[in-house]
């Protein structure tokens, strides 16, 4: 039976990179999934949680649980937002055993997009074509909280015409960190400049990741530095033909 996927697009994609959400839906449908978009979704609460506003984050988490309660699979174009729902909600509700059951049930249904494709749908070749030299940025939460290292690379390896050129600092943080980039703009700027130096050394013309917020940070620095390198979400690469 075809998996029923509910998109959890995240605030950043909804507001700033809507085409990433559409590309994700296209790829999932081509891979045989039935896709819907629960309109009541808003924000997972990560910015509040990361800023120390736990009560506010808890309220937003409850809303998330309501909206996605009856879904079969919840798939998101972000390692960071996925990790918030699958890992950090438990920290918000650990004193509330009744709610913890619900949190655990939901956590097992939330998937990051690339791993959902390789591990649940069981597909690596989505029939994409993209004739570019690509480097992949490991976003921190996908890499270290979810352990996602190989799924995006397996998917990229099967894209026609694509050459993967890893950069030496692939596991180094881009310096975004949500409100960190607002509270510490100069430190954040220093970090992303280190990142783009490494990207430039790889000779790639496109940076790919599974988190649009990292890509926004990297794109902003590439553009400021005048480097002719663009950023694309993995979903957009996989939707290309």
């Amino acid at each position: 039976m075809a998996p029923r996927v509910s998109l959890f697009v995240t605030c950043v994609v909804d507001q700033l990179f809507p085409k990433v959400g559409i590309a994700m839906a296209d790829v999932l449908e081509r891979a045989g999934c039935i896709v819907d978009f629960p309109e009541g979704q808003t924000c997972c609460g990560q910015p509040a949680f990361n800023s120390g506003y736990r009560d506010e984050a808890r309220g937003m988490a409850l809303h998330f649980l309501d909206v996605f309660r009856d879904c079969e699979y919840i798939v998101s174009p972000s390692g960071s937002c996925t990790a918030m729902a699958s890992h950090h909600y438990a920290e918000l509700f650990h004193k509330d055993p009744a709610r913890m059951d619900e949190v655990r049930r939901m956590a097992s249904k939330v998937w990051e997009f690339s791993r959902f494709l390789t591990d649940v749908v069981g597909v690596e070749d989505v029939g994409a074509r993209f004739e570019h030299r690509v480097t992949y940025h490991d976003s921190c939460h996908a890499l270290r909280e979810l352990g996602i290292k190989t799924p995006p690379r397996k998917l990229l390896a099967r894209v026609d015409g694509l050459t993967l050129a890893e950069h030496d600092a692939t596991e180094e943080c881009c310096g975004f960190g949500g409100t960190f980039s607002v509270k510490f703009p100069t430190v954040s700027g220093g970090m992303v400049r280190t990142k783009i130096d490494s990207i430039a050394r790889s000779g790639a013309d496109t940076v790919v990741s599974i988190d649009s917020s990292c890509l926004m940070q990297i794109q902003g620095a590439l553009s400021r530095a005048g480097l002719p390198i663009r950023t694309m979400h993995l979903a957009e690469v996989l939707a290309s033909r």
Binding site: D14, G21, I22, P185, S188, V192, Q217, Q219, G220
Partner: peptide, 26 residues
Amino acid sequence: PIADWLSQRDLPPLPPKTFRQLWRER
């Protein structure tokens, strides 16, 4: 704060429509 942010990097161009709008059209 946004000016401080922009002291370090450029903002992406804001899209004319949100995902919600694109999804309804689709």
